[in-house]
Each structure stands twice: as structure tokens, then as C-alpha cells.
Simulated scan of single mutants.
Amino acid sequence: MDVDVVVVGGGAMGSAAAWQLALRGRSVVLLEQFREGHHVGASHGATRNFNTAYAEDDYLALVSEARGLWDGLAKEAGTRLLDLVGLANHGNVARLREVRSAHAERGIASHFISAKEAGERWPGMAFRSDVLFVPESGRVRAAEALRVLRTSAEAHGARFEYSTPVRDIRVLGDDRAVVVTDSQEITAHRVVVTAGAWTSKLVGTQVPLPRLVVTQEQPAHFTPINGSQLWPSFNHAPDPGDPHDDYWYSPVYGMLTPDEGVKAGWHGVGPVTDPDARTFQPEPVQLEALRRYAREWLPGVDAESAVPISCTYTSTANEDFVLDRFGPLVIGAGFSGHGFKFTPAIGRVLADLVDGIDAPHRFSGRSRA
């Protein structure tokens, strides 16, 4: 079989790439090793933060583009993909001032409120210092987003094949590669690899990727004590030098996931793992520290009700994404636990790379190999 593009990996980024390529009239086959809706990788779950709290202009440009694309997808599908409940950022106020300045330059609405006002507005949370509130942020309906991306991609001619592991990718030249599965060989001008935790296993010997570290993360859902309380999404950084935060493993992120509870988690500090040999069991010391965080900072939840979730992060050293092309191979990797909000814009960048248009320099894998 010959096609324009094979996409390897059917999570958020692969689905978005297939969607964008199909919109451009390319013949596209997406191959996913697991069944649809599996919980083995990084894209499953009902919600993700939609967060614009970046100070870096290239990230702000990408998330602003993503917002428009999310809205367009939602309109096309007749559904809602973003819940703009707002996002409260607190801790490390010096960094938040940098974010606010970057927002002002880009015309992104955000403003500081005092810890007292924040506590009165959101009594389920505790605050120590000023809070940067971003009203046009909130959460992405992640599971629904995957469904909509696939539906739109298929409506424009893409084909999605699940339970189809890729066994080999053979590069035949700058404009030709062969993708091998158990049942077929597909020849393509480009192969987009969005394989998450399996990226290095699949193409690490063929392209000069930066080091990608796979960790098993364990956020948890906590049961709200009062179901009528309002909850913004949130990011909470430890205050530099404050001994009260010494037990923290990292900044904390979270959001209300309807019907599941308030999700909260450490960021990118889980045990390093092989994606094919995961335990799916929470690391008990980190989980107890997360419960302690909930007791101290989330008074609106039952801290002992924690239901751990298991997912993978695939992280670069500086948490920047890898979006690059090497001959016929286009790589999207290293989304480091903060990529989902950007999904439709990442799909556009990957489709551009297929068409020979460079990604923003920050995301060049070659510059960090």
C-alpha cells in the first residue's frame, strides 16, 4: 500500500496530525498499537488543564492558536471541548509577575487578586500570596477531544487502525519510508511518529533525538466535601526558600473533573519506567505527600479519599517539546506533561513539517541532541 503519510501513534498528537493532514488533502493512515480509548499511555482521562500561564512568547503563540482551533473543532462537532472555569496560579509570585507581563504584551486577560479574595471566591482552596487569575483558561474535555479529532479526520479521508503495532520503520530515502506491521507494509512519503513513551524505542537509533525520560506519574482524584463549591483549574508552585514547602516534589497542578473529583498531582517526578513494564501501582511516599498537600491546601476535599491515576510523561531535560523532521520522519515527542492544551496547534506544526515548513526553533530536536 502507498499513502502520502503514515502516522504512528493514535493519542492526542497523532490524532491531531492526522486531522490536519487530512484537511490538507493528504492520504493518511494512522496506526495505533493499542485499542481505542486505552489507558496505557498519556492521552487518556476526562480532563486536562487549559492553561495560558506561560511567559515565553512561542508557547503563548501556540496556546493562543490552539484556543482558536479548539473552538473551531467544537463548533464543527456541535459539542463543547473547553470549560472556561478560569485558572488560578499561585506560589512563586515573582514568576507570576513575568507571566502577567507577557500576557499584557499579547493582550491575554489576566489579573492578580489577593490571597484573601481568592479564599473567599474559592473556599475549597487555600492561598498564601497573591493569585494570578486567568479567566479564559480552565480545562479541556480530553476524552471528547480525542473523539472529535478522529471523527473530523475520518470525515476528511484519514483512516485510523487500532490494535496495530508498528514493528519497524525503514527509511529508503529523503522522501520515502516503509512502515511494517504484522499484516502489511505501507510505503509513505512521510511518517509522523507520535508514539509517546515508545518514541525512543521505535526511532531512537534512526534520528538524533534529545534524551527522552519516561516516568510513571500518579495524580489522584479527591472527593469534594461540598459539591456546590466552585473550583477553578489551578497551578501551584512552591515558594522559593520557604521551608514549609520542603516536602513538595514539584509544582502541583489540578482541576475539577466532573463526576470524578478534584484532580491534583505532582509534575514529572514519578519513577522512571519502561512503558512496556509498568506496575501501574502508585509510589506510596509520593502519594502520601500528595495527600498532605491536599490536607494543607485543598480544604474543600477529603484528603484521605485519594484515588490514584496512572499515566506516563515523556520529558525532555528542559520540558520543551520535540517537533522536527529527519528525512522522511517527522517527530512529535517530549510533551512533558504540559502538551495536551496545545494539541490542535501541535497537529498543525506536524502537518507543516510534513510539507517542509520548519517548526519554531525552540522545538528543534536537532538543537538539543
Rank of each mutant, 00 (worst) to 15 (best):
P282T: 11
A155V: 06
S64E: 14
D83N: 14
G157T: 04
W297F: 05
R141I: 00
P210R: 08
D182N: 14
P308G: 02
S228M: 00
A195I: 03
T151L: 13
R150H: 05
F342V: 05
A177R: 00
G365K: 07
W297M: 05
S367G: 08
Y249S: 06
A153F: 09
F112P: 07
D182G: 15
G268Y: 02
I113F: 04
L323P: 11
E154Q: 12
G107V: 11
D242E: 14
A158I: 03
G37T: 04
A220W: 01
G124A: 09
K341E: 12
A16P: 12
P328G: 06
W231T: 03
D352C: 01
T215N: 03
E32R: 01
H39A: 11
L30K: 01
V192E: 03
L353T: 06
A22P: 12
L84P: 06
K263H: 10
V6T: 08
V99D: 06
Y247W: 09
K201M: 09
L209D: 01
R35Y: 14
A220S: 06
E36G: 03
E76I: 10
F342L: 08
N89F: 04
T316I: 14
S163G: 07
V93D: 01
A55H: 03
S101D: 15
T316G: 13
V262S: 04
S200E: 13
G25F: 09
V307H: 11
A109Y: 14
G41Y: 04
P123V: 05
G300A: 09
D71E: 15
D246F: 04
V179R: 00
A17T: 12
V272S: 14
L287S: 15
V6Q: 09
S137C: 07
A345N: 03
V179K: 00
A277L: 12
G9I: 07
N235R: 08
V193P: 06
P275F: 13
A17G: 10
Q20E: 15
G227Y: 00
A155C: 09
L73A: 09
H38D: 13
S163D: 15
S114M: 12
R35E: 15
D358S: 14
H38K: 05
L31K: 03
V99Q: 02
W248P: 01
A277D: 15
D259A: 14
V178R: 07
R278E: 10
G261W: 04
K116V: 15
P282H: 08
R348E: 03
W19E: 14
R95M: 05
G265C: 02
P240I: 00
A18Y: 10
N226G: 02
P275N: 13
S250I: 10
Y313L: 13
I108M: 12
G157V: 07
G261Y: 04
E76M: 05
V354F: 09
R48W: 08
D302K: 05
P208I: 10
P238W: 06
G72S: 09
S27C: 13
T312H: 14
G339S: 09
Q33E: 09
P360Q: 08
A177E: 07
G14N: 11
A195L: 04
R80D: 11
W266C: 05
V28G: 12
S367K: 13
S233V: 01
V301L: 09
I186W: 02
A306G: 13
S315V: 00
A277C: 08
I346N: 05
L31W: 07
N49R: 11
P224L: 00
V171F: 08
S364N: 13
E319G: 09
